[in-house]
């Protein structure tokens, strides 16, 4: 059994040790954990600040709709200032926006990792014509102008379909090729390894070989790939919201807030700070963690491209 292979166990503890010594990876993990906490505790935090991301507060604005006070209206009532024009609380938008980012990011990653793993394993394990066909399709999808297709697909989705789910599905649907490519390559080499050949020789059914021999050897690579796919999915959600076709308002989304900041950049540049910094730090966190995981667990997975 590959999982109980003592060599494998040793490799895993070694990876843990390396990961614990990797300052960048630890910083990344801390950033990610911080945002997960913000997202999970969002209702509690906004209860503490007595704000929510939906209520307008015209009192905090001057006659031109610009937040009053320093740094975009930072005050005891509004810890990170307020949105121009509406006076909605930016702290509440930040913590609830973390929910949107993480939910969509993790959901889309799950879709693309599952789909990519299935395609990659099928292509790599079956080989031959199916492999050629799937690999060509993967290559085609990899170079596809996916953002343009995501925007276009927004035209045909019925308005009754939940928008957040739609975003998860489209981002996932265009994110699988990079996973499939790596998984295919790994499966291709695993297929010719002795333990797989032995399992085939004793007549083990394919489903068993895939589950008991191939998958345990892919699991760590797939975990690394998944971690490295999250920042891409988060940025994609923010990009769609930035372009005005993401989650439906008033559901908070950092991307939409950044888009709104475009028109206020000259009079209220502080408006950009909170959502911009949050998006940057969360993406950076996942990237650092992903890089660290890759170095520790799986140097074979190359090309860390967020």
């Amino acid at each position: 059994m590959a999982v109980l292979d003592p060599h494998h166990l040793q490799a895993t503890t070694g990876a843990w040790r390396q990961l614990r010594g990797d300052r960048w990876a630890l910083m990344g993990a801390a950033l990610v954990a911080g945002f997960v906490l913000l997202a999970v505790l969002a209702p509690l935090l906004t209860a503490l600040s007595h704000t929510d991301p939906y209520t307008y507060d015209i009192e905090a604005l001057d006659a031109a709709g610009v937040p009053m006070g320093m740094f975009g209206g930072v005050s005891g009532a509004h810890w990170l200032g307020v949105e121009p024009q509406t006076g909605r609380d930016l702290f509440a938008i930040l913590v609830y926006g973390a929910r949107t980012s993480l939910l969509v990011g993790l959901g889309a990653t799950a879709v693309s990792v599952v789909a990519g793993t299935v395609v990659g394993v099928v292509a790599g394990y079956t080989g031959g014509f199916a492999d050629m066909l799937l690999s060509r399709f993967t290559d085609l999808m990899l170079a596809f102008p996916s953002l343009i297709f995501m925007i276009a697909l927004g035209a045909i989705v019925p308005s009754s379909f939940p928008k957040a789910l739609f975003i998860v599905l489209v981002i996932g649907a265009f994110g699988w090729p990079s996973v499939a490519r790596v998984v295919r390559g790994l499966t291709l080499t695993l297929r010719t390894r002795d333990f797989v050949l032995a399992a085939r020789a004793i007549g083990a059914p394919t489903s068993r070989i895939l589950r008991a021999e191939i998958w345990p050897n892919l699991a760590s690579s797939v975990t690394v790939l998944a971690t490295m796919a999250v920042p891409g999915a988060i940025t994609a959600e923010a990009a769609l919201s930035f372009l005005g076709i993401g989650v439906t308002p008033p559901t908070p989304s950092w991307g939409r807030t950044i888009a709104n900041a475009v028109s206020w950049i000259q009079v209220d540049p502080w408006y950009l700070l909170a959502p911009g910094a949050a998006l940057f730090l969360l993406t950076l966190g996942f990237n650092m963690l992903g890089d660290g995981l890759r170095d520790a667990y799986d140097p074979r997975v190359s090309g860390s491209r967020g």
Binding site: W24, P231, T235, A238, A239, F242, I258, A259, A261, V262, I265, Q266, P269, L272, G276, L279, F280, T283, L284, N287, M288, D291, S304, R305, G306
Partner: peptide, 22 residues
């Protein structure tokens, strides 16, 4: 590279507009 990978282009764009443009 590490920082750049994590920085969405529109964010950089807005900062560039703010700094170089205004």
């Amino acid at each position: 590279a590490m920082v750049g990978v994590s920085m969405p282009s529109y964010l950089v764009g807005l900062l560039a507009i703010l700094f170089f443009g205004f």
